[in-house]
Design a protein around this nucleic acid. Sequence first.
DNA 1: GAACTAATGTAATATTATTACATATCATTG
DNA 2: CAATGATATGTAATAATATTACATTAGTTC
Lengths: 192, 192
Amino acid sequence: MNMQTRTPASSPADNGYGFSDRIQRQLEHAAHLCAGQGGRMTPQRRDVLGLILTATTPVGAYDLLEQLKTSGRKPAPPTVYRALDFLLEHGLIHRIERLSAFVPCTHLQHDHPHDHSHGPAETCLHSAQFLICRSCGGVTEIADAPRVLDVLKSICGKKNFTMQSASVEVEGVCEDCAPATRGQKGPAPAPN
Amino acid sequence: MNMQTRTPASSPADNGYGFSDRIQRQLEHAAHLCAGQGGRMTPQRRDVLGLILTATTPVGAYDLLEQLKTSGRKPAPPTVYRALDFLLEHGLIHRIERLSAFVPCTHLQHDHPHDHSHGPAETCLHSAQFLICRSCGGVTEIADAPRVLDVLKSICGKKNFTMQSASVEVEGVCEDCAPATRGQKGPAPAPN
DNA sequence: GAACTAATGTAATATTATTACATATCATTG
DNA sequence: CAATGATATGTAATAATATTACATTAGTTC
């Protein structure tokens, strides 16, 4: 890819959000993952994913819509929802049901230089487990999740239920926001 | 005032739905539970709970609204949402996040003659675990749930996260629906 | 029964999501 | 290159879900 004279004409807003280097790397990674599954990481999708990666809390579809409007284009809801659908199908983001909002899939967050093993459908099962803080709004994906998933799998097995996707959402108060237990730090500034 | 003086004027729709004996018993049970917590099981709330108990699949707020309209009153959304909030707070129903719909809490379903130990906030933690069938729309509360909850509790403990409520929702195809879709249409590979 | 609290009625609006159809872009290949 | 077919996006309208704010009614307590 040569990018000497000009940025791609079709994506003037592509970097218009000033995505950090780290996020640009994650976007690059995501693009490779998509390509591996025959998906195309278009500028729209890239922008949406970039905004989700940039946010420190889950982002709603209409939040995204507003942010996209500030950068030249004036997208309508379907534009955003289609991008979100694409990103969900490719395992790049998750939907937090309780918030009607979206977060990146963690395997984008932790820079894996060349770990492509975390496919979308097969290995990931498109399931996720989250801790949602009511105080700061932060959401943490549970690392310990395989244990939860194993229990669920075993239950489904017993009941002959074919699991296609699963979501586990715990709402409460995160460590940083809990005032009573220790010296109060106040609501946490930024999770993750 | 004694309860003996039935209020026929204010609750003509009370039994207007022809709730079965079984459901009337469940409603009675629910009323006692509420009373024990200082809650009042009003006709509106009773009707809403009865409709949810009657349905075989999760019911949406506007479904309830429509059904309530057929029985004399013409409630508006807040009426239904307030009843739902009350029932949720008293642990009588659960919200299925993925469906934006409501189901009875199982402890109303299985007739316990005198089991009032299943309090709403403390013992129940207002958490629930469900299997949601994409084919028939049926929802099953997982009986085996304590195991799931225990794992979650242990994770939250490690992270100093105070759990206030949790939802576990598994989507897929239930046993009864699996044979019908066994060929290519099955839930086999791609999530789409 | 006056005063207070809880519950409901009512109108308007907010938020989240989808449908249907038109247009544009891309990736070929004839 | 032009024709093609699939993929992606634009656009307008609307559906589905949920909340706000304020008025009214019902129940309880003193």
